[in-house]
Simulated scan of single mutants.
Amino acid sequence: MSKVRVLGFSVSLDGYGAGPEQSLEHPFGKGGMELPQWLMGTKTFNTMIGEQGGSTGVDDRYAAASLQGFGAFIIGRNMFGPLRGEWPDENWKGWWGDNPPYHTPVFVLTHHARPSIEMEGGTTFHFVTEGADEALKRAKAAAGKLDVKIGGGVETVRHYLRTGAIDDMHLAISPVLLGKGEALFAGLDLPALGYQVTARETTDLATHVVLEKR
C-alpha cells in the first residue's frame, strides 16, 4: 500500500530543520549546511552528483533508502528556491541544475501560479496553488502504488504532521546546535498525533531515528 513518508530529513540537536535567513548563498539558512554532513560523505550522495567513492555504512544505508520507492514528491516553495512573492520570470528552475535528483513528478506548494517545468531525467515540477491537501491528492494519484515523499522544508513537513498524513519518517539528528532557525517540532505533540519511535542507530555524524504512526 502506498505511504506518505519523510526520509533523510536532517535536524539539529536543538530541533531546527533549517537555519535562519535562507538565501541563494545559504540554501539551508545560515549554518544549515552543517545539518546534512552525514549524507554528503556517503556513496549514495557521491553517485547522485556523478562522483566516485564515499562511505557504505549506516549513513549510506539511510541515504539510499531516502531515494527509493517514491513515485512523487511534495516540497514547499522555499525548498524550490529563495524567491519570494510573484515569480519575476521563469528563469529559476530550482537548486539542482538541468537534471534534478527527483526523477518523478514534484508538486511545489506556492501561492503564485506558474506553468509546469519538465526537466531532464524524468523530473517535472508542478506548482500547486490550491493548498497542501490538493498537492497530496495529486501526488498520490501520480505516485500510483509507489510512495509519496514529503521532501521539505520544515513548514511543509510540519503541516503534514499536524494533519496526520505522514505514515513514517526518518530523521537524521546531527550533533550540531543552530540556536535559531526553523524549529521542526515546536508546538507539536507527536505522541498525541500517534507517532512513536520504532528504530534508532547512531554514527559519528548522526543519530538516525525512525518514527511511525500507530
Results as ranks from 00 to 15, higher is better:
R5Y: 02
V6P: 08
S12G: 08
G15Q: 06
G17C: 12
G17I: 14
S23M: 11
S23A: 15
L24T: 15
P27R: 10
K30L: 13
M33L: 14
E34I: 08
P36V: 04
M40C: 00
G41E: 01
G41Y: 00
K43N: 12
F45N: 06
T47W: 06
T47S: 15
I49E: 03
Q52F: 13
G54C: 10
S55E: 06
T56F: 09
V58G: 04
V58T: 15
D59W: 02
D60P: 02
D60I: 08
R61G: 07
R61H: 08
Y62M: 04
F70R: 05
F70G: 05
I75R: 01
F80D: 07
F80R: 06
L83Y: 11
E86R: 10
E86V: 09
W87L: 07
P88W: 06
D89A: 07
E90I: 05
G97S: 12
P100C: 13
Y102N: 07
H103M: 12
P105S: 04
V108I: 09
V108M: 01
L109Y: 01
T110C: 05
T110S: 01
R114P: 13
M119T: 05
M119S: 09
G121M: 10
V128Y: 02
V128K: 01
A132V: 00
D133A: 10
E134T: 09
A135H: 00
L136H: 02
R138N: 01
A139S: 04
G144S: 11
G153I: 07
V154Y: 06
T156D: 00
T156E: 01
T156I: 08
H159L: 02
H159R: 06
Y160I: 00
Y160F: 14
D167P: 03
D168K: 09
D168R: 12
A172E: 06
G179Q: 04
K180R: 14
E182M: 12
L184P: 03
L184T: 12
F185I: 03
F185S: 05
A186D: 15
A192F: 12
L193H: 04
G194C: 11
V197P: 13
T202P: 03
T202E: 12
T203Y: 02
T203I: 03
D204S: 07
D204M: 05
A206S: 13
H208P: 09
V210M: 06
E212S: 14
E212Y: 07
K213S: 10
